[in-house]
Design a protein around this nucleic acid. Sequence first.
DNA 1: TTGACAAATGGAGACAGTCTCCATATTCTC
DNA 2: GAGAATATGGAGACTGTCTCCATTTGTCAA
Lengths: 192, 192
Amino acid sequence: MSESRAMRADARRNRDAIVAAARDVFDRDEQLRFDDFAARAGVGVGTLYRHFPTREALAAAVYEGEVATLVEHARDPEHSAIENLDAVLRGFVEYLVGHAGLARTLAAVVDPAVQADGGVELEGTIGELLRQATADGAVRPGIDVGAIMIVLHGIGSATDRPDWASESRGAVELLLAGLRASRSPSASTGDR
Amino acid sequence: MSESRAMRADARRNRDAIVAAARDVFDRDEQLRFDDFAARAGVGVGTLYRHFPTREALAAAVYEGEVATLVEHARDPEHSAIENLDAVLRGFVEYLVGHAGLARTLAAVVDPAVQADGGVELEGTIGELLRQATADGAVRPGIDVGAIMIVLHGIGSATDRPDWASESRGAVELLLAGLRASRSPSASTGDR
DNA sequence: TTGACAAATGGAGACAGTCTCCATATTCTC
DNA sequence: GAGAATATGGAGACTGTCTCCATTTGTCAA
């Protein structure tokens, strides 16, 4: 993103090859040894490490593009904020469901501990839609983007569940319903 | 749980020592080398491995007790199913928030890939409360326990988020609100 | 073009955990 | 108390991660 200075041509070429190889590996959910990523991309381990010091950094690079696509049609002015929010969240899940292999890795990107531009962008977009939808009165006030991110995080990291795909869709429905619910019913029976 | 045959006294003693040490380590969120768990518990690595072949198995053992406590006051006959469900879910989050270190590891237990009795029990209990609450008409029909588990999974695995505690509480509120919402508003604008 | 300098490469090998194996020690049973 | 059964522990094999630097490749000014 903010490439400080021009990158040498061979460096760029290698970087791209690595990302392409990684996308492929993640997508088919191959459990590959880090060294082998390098072999797969046709570069040496050293090169791999210089470009991407950690597995997460690599994942982040892969997702940057994907997330950009997801987020892109999120500001459709034809629709209200709540409709766009709805579309982004459903779209996100459908994307993950369609790429189960990628989902596992994505958890890292949703995680802010990893400084992934993709994750920041996703959260920013959802946050803005949420703010707008709240202002419109379509979402009950007092909801934090973080709560939504946590649900997404759950979807990304629960891929081992046998019924993961449908459960994930269910989780998003639950989330959307919760956002719109007129008021927090707060049926808490006092304390216990 | 289903200890097939009596365990030799020394074996039981060691097992217990290991679990106690592990609980301690997880709770203070120390990042310990697997070998060191053994040292900490005063046993050899071999012993550790015989009792707990993987890190998850160890985590599962630690949580078995904890989850039992959580689940215990979940069938309070004084309250309706939805009230008990509410209490269990909030209780679960408060427990995790109070033991952030444990939460990270807990993610493994919520995961059914790991055959952890604690996880199975938790899911079973929540499922039953959900079923009952649905029958009572307090929860809108068609909701799958799995969707709830996914949200819990998210809470357990998002501990790196700087504002994790409050976001987790927010996620549970969202979840509870979604459960009660009268109908899935389905504001989806057709397809896109 | 070409020379000179900076940047990038790759893979051998150092390193750090994980896990196995089995001679020895402990517990149990009669 | 003897013998059988079970458990122990830790040395060392193994597996994957990451560093380091001699060599190669690209860039640019002349």
